[in-house]
Design a protein around this nucleic acid. Sequence first.
DNA 1: GACTCATTGTACCGCTCGGTACAGTGTCGG
DNA 2: CCGACACTGTACCGAGCGGTACAATGAGTC
Lengths: 189, 189
Amino acid sequence: MRRIAPDRDGLLAMIGEVFREHGYEGASLALIGAATGLGKGSLYHFFPGGKEEMGRAVIAHIDCWFEENVFAPLRDSTDPQVGIERMLAATDSYFRSGRRVCLIGAFALEEPRDLFADQIRDYFGRWVTHLADALARAGHQPGEASELAEEAVAAIQGALTLARAADDADVFARALRRVRVRLGLTAGG
Amino acid sequence: MRRIAPDRDGLLAMIGEVFREHGYEGASLALIGAATGLGKGSLYHFFPGGKEEMGRAVIAHIDCWFEENVFAPLRDSTDPQVGIERMLAATDSYFRSGRRVCLIGAFALEEPRDLFADQIRDYFGRWVTHLADALARAGHQPGEASELAEEAVAAIQGALTLARAADDADVFARALRRVRVRLGLTAGG
DNA sequence: GACTCATTGTACCGCTCGGTACAGTGTCGG
DNA sequence: CCGACACTGTACCGAGCGGTACAATGAGTC
């Protein structure tokens, strides 16, 4: 039988979903094994450090995705407005328009926050910084750009919480629309 | 020996802190017992339904505090602006200016979300509704008031996540200041 | 065919979990 | 003085936890 989890990328994605759905504490090795089709033997072969290493790897995997699809456009687009728009589109698709939760945000609130504190701080810090840079290049004063960036990222995180609480993805869609306006992407409507 | 946990209110506050610090899954009965000074016998005497009943009671306890200190001012102040200002002050003090996390927000993201879905939806729903009403009374169009209310509550929740992630309470202070401006409380500066 | 070595399944470890049972214990009203 | 009863400590339960040990397995290589 060919293995079900073909590569490390797919494996990390599956484990990530388990963490997302059950939280760090709630994601037992039995659940992870069931989701990946791998036994403990295999799991500990790939992640000798056990659950903590899995958590660290999953965060790094997500971080990497954001680096490529969210931060890079912000940094590299010649037109900062285009970069910001691409960031918002990637964000919307990643969170499945609010039907998916931010794993790193959840980790920031719950138990494993001390375990992964550095990675979590880094992730959000880079998001805010890169957005602030893009806003500055778009013409905002540096201080104003920082505030606006922080406001936008917080709005996204808060909307994910509210959307999950209300079980209503529209909450997230409305929030993204407001962020878009606030960051100056749709001048008049 | 007089008991350490004098009344149900104080007891729920202690248990709430354990949930806040360790999450629902992570808050073991051993931790709860240590925090309250109560053995399992006593805990199951007060909460025959076990951990789930504790969770439910803690949420209700927090909900009650918000009802009195956050929602009531929004609803009952003759001047809606005063009500909104009082809500923000209560919010700031409750979350200890960002050093404390929103337990119900954390529950919304993690495992017990299905268990407590109704209570969680209710809590955030009432917060948004009452704020929207106050904003409408302050002169906003109904639709605009709803959007603004949702934006404000999401901004607060997101700021709590970011503040915890960055381990920097200033993130929350800045967010509250922006919300204050956005809701029209400080006209010019 | 024999060696290598990444990969896997299985049995097992000690521990902690949430929860139960129950025999006290202290403090009441009568 | 006595029963009633709210409260508490302790011992215990089966289950599941994260983690370890190890013996297969099987494909690739010489």
